[in-house]
Simulated assay, not measured.
Amino acid sequence: MRFAVLGTGYWAREVHAASLAGHTDAELVGVWGRDLGKAKAAGAQFDVPGTTDLDQLLADVDAVSIAVPPDVQVPLAVAAAQAGRHLLMEKPIALDLAGADRAVDAARAAGVASVVFFTARFRTATSTWLQQAARTTLAGGALTWIGSLAGSPFGHSPWRHEHGALWDIGPHALALLVPALGPVTAVQAGRGQGDTVHLVLTHPEGRASTVTLSHTSSELAAGIDVWVHGDAGRLVLLPESGTAVEAHRVAVDELSAAALTGGSHPCDVTFGRDVVRVIETAQRALASGCRETVGG
């Protein structure tokens, strides 16, 4: 499968493009960016052309791997789908439900395959954990993901500073808890220091989970803890040493398989839209101080 990377930032270069450039069954054909100089520099890093001409690049590929801010991602995904190109997207797929719906509608209308790169979902440890959870009668779970943007490669990311941890790492939390506990039906939310948010998520059959997210905590306190509990005790998702590049290569393989078979992927654009719906509900709950129903 021939890929174009849409984006020129750190994640686009060091994960998406690096993954495709070293993939045994996929080919990186070119890099698109809004700034021609940055696009050419990113392309040169991997010995492929860099361009601002999206239509021309789409004509040369089978799929796109998108790594741009969420508000930029939607029109790119729509254009790529309308050109018949399969979609490997970043989370969140949009910053509002209307944008997410546009991406879903475009992918469905074009009949293209889609995968959203929720990084942990493409790691072996997560697959094993979810298989164990599926064999257990669960009552609930918890996820804590705290850290600091300061000093990270994303420290100067405008959309992350504007929308906070809820929109940046909230989707990762949902991508782990929803397949284990079921879809979120309601959200309660409260704020902490900085951009810290605390969520209580209601799942079917009386299951519930708690989530704490922060991009503004002390670097010394940074860490991720994920577990679910039930009749077999507590199932902890253990950290895995694999890199994001390795996870992205798995996502490429799974997109290729979905494109070949015409099947859907558990982390497709429709699931990405469902995640945006829950994050929007959490945003409403933060504003109202009340328990908010998803889709209500």
Results as ranks from 00 to 15, higher is better:
A107N: 09
L149Q: 04
L130D: 12
A81P: 05
T137R: 14
A100F: 02
G151Q: 05
A142M: 03
I169M: 07
A120D: 15
L97R: 13
R160E: 01
L143M: 11
A113T: 09
G140P: 14
R121C: 11
H86K: 11
H172D: 12
D101S: 14
A134H: 13
T119D: 12
L87Q: 12
S152H: 06
E162C: 01
G151V: 02
G170T: 01
G151S: 05
P158D: 09
L166Q: 04
A81S: 15
L87Y: 13
L176Y: 11
L87N: 12
D96L: 01
H86M: 12
H156I: 04
V104A: 02
P92F: 10
L174M: 04
I146V: 15
W159D: 03
R135T: 06
H86E: 08
R123N: 10
D105W: 10
A106K: 09
A139Y: 12
F118A: 08
T128P: 02
W159T: 00
H163M: 00
Q131G: 04
A120G: 14
A133T: 11
F117W: 13
G164W: 07
L130E: 14
A150F: 09
R108T: 14
H163I: 00
A113H: 12
S127P: 04
A107P: 10
I169E: 07
S127H: 15
